[in-house]
Write a protein that binds this DNA or RNA. Structure first.
Length: 318
DNA sequence: AATACGGGGCT
DNA sequence: AGCCCAGTATT
């Protein structure tokens, strides 16, 4: 006999078989298996948590960890980052990817200084209003930096819920209203419990309930999992759009130009930029995009006819 | 709802 | 070669 006889409204998200059992098992597992990450250390700051969350937007933990340590050592407080040169910020960001995040993180630091006296706010709406902070990061900072209740729904949690609750191999490409309601229903009512659940459910998705080869035998909720009960069926969603090949894309070209300018000691002449990509039209398009994004700066030409390198020069924004 | 946006490691 | 990674902003 089912443990939960509560009737489900038509169209509502499927009820969790036993929310308390799921939460208890996952949190207990987390108490034993949580990774020892620096942004979880007792001496972490709210700013450190925010920095880690921005770095972790689409960049794996293993690559973020050393970058985060160096970054926090150099710019421990929002005011420190706010006062830095964007060029230094972009160089420190190095190859974490999506360098616009670095620019936004600095804008965020400046906004924290100007709007909040240099202290990271704990209010969700105020967090959401900061540059580079979206719904996930706002919820994560609230939970992990301030221990407050929030619905943290990242790719890991979405996958765990898709499997345990819905019995699907993978979540839908974009979150649905019902999915958010199901996530909300699983979050404990109290601040401490909710924050613990957020960290634990994310960790389970990262270490056990992984996208590729889930380690179901090691899972604390293997006997409560709807997906496993159904025989671990394959993904039912339409095949993802064929991912754009990396070679030859604007993203690759932009990345090469940024790599060139990160390493350049002086503003680079157009000939140096041309050397990183042969297709003139594509290179110019990408350069224009980087200028528009504020990732690259054009330096005024001081004198004409200065040999082969006459013409505009480019550098990271000062 | 779709797209653009880095970069690297794994299968 | 394709997939995945603690997403966000813009169209």
């Amino acid at each position: 006999m089912p443990a939960d006889p509560t009737p489900t409204a038509p169209g509502a998200a499927p009820a969790v078989p036993d929310a308390a059992a799921v939460r208890g098992a996952v949190v207990a597992w987390f108490d034993v298996h949580a990774r020892d990450l620096p942004w979880r250390a007792p001496d972490r700051t709210a700013w450190g948590v925010l920095v880690s969350e921005v770095m972790l937007q689409q960049t794996p933990v293993v690559r973020v960890e050393p970058a985060w340590r160096a970054w926090m050592s150099r710019w421990p407080r929002p005011a420190d980052l706010a006062a830095a040169s964007p060029a230094d910020v972009l160089r420190a960001w190095d190859r974490l990817g999506y360098p616009r995040r670095a620019l936004r993180l600095q804008e965020c630091a400046r906004a924290v200084v100007e709007r909040h006296g240099g202290e990271v706010p704990s209010d969700e709406a105020e967090l959401l209003a900061l540059p580079g902070i979206g719904s996930y990061t706002a919820a994560a900072v609230r939970a992990f930096a301030f221990g407050r209740r929030s619905v943290v729904l990242d790719t890991n949690v979405r996958r765990v819920l898709a499997r345990v609750v819905e019995g699907a191999a993978l979540p839908a490409p974009t979150p649905t209203v019902g999915e958010r309601a199901a996530a909300e229903a699983l979050v404990p009512p109290d601040d401490a419990g909710a924050a613990r659940w957020a960290a634990a459910s994310m960790e389970l998705g990262a270490l056990v309930c992984t996208a590729r080869a889930p380690r179901c035998p090691a899972c604390p909720v293997r006997d409560l999992c709807a997906w496993r009960a159904a025989g671990s069926p394959a993904d039912v969603h339409a095949p993802r759009r064929r991912t754009q090949a990396w070679a030859g894309t604007d993203r690759q070209v932009r990345g090469r130009i940024m790599a060139l300018l990160r390493e350049a000691l002086e503003p680079a002449p157009a000939s140096a930029v041309a050397a990183v990509w042969p297709d003139d039209a594509q290179r110019e398009r990408c350069l224009a995009g980087l200028l528009a994004d504020g990732l690259v700066e054009r330096v005024a030409v001081e004198r004409a006819g200065d040999g082969d390198d006459a013409g505009p020069r480019y550098r990271l924004p000062v």
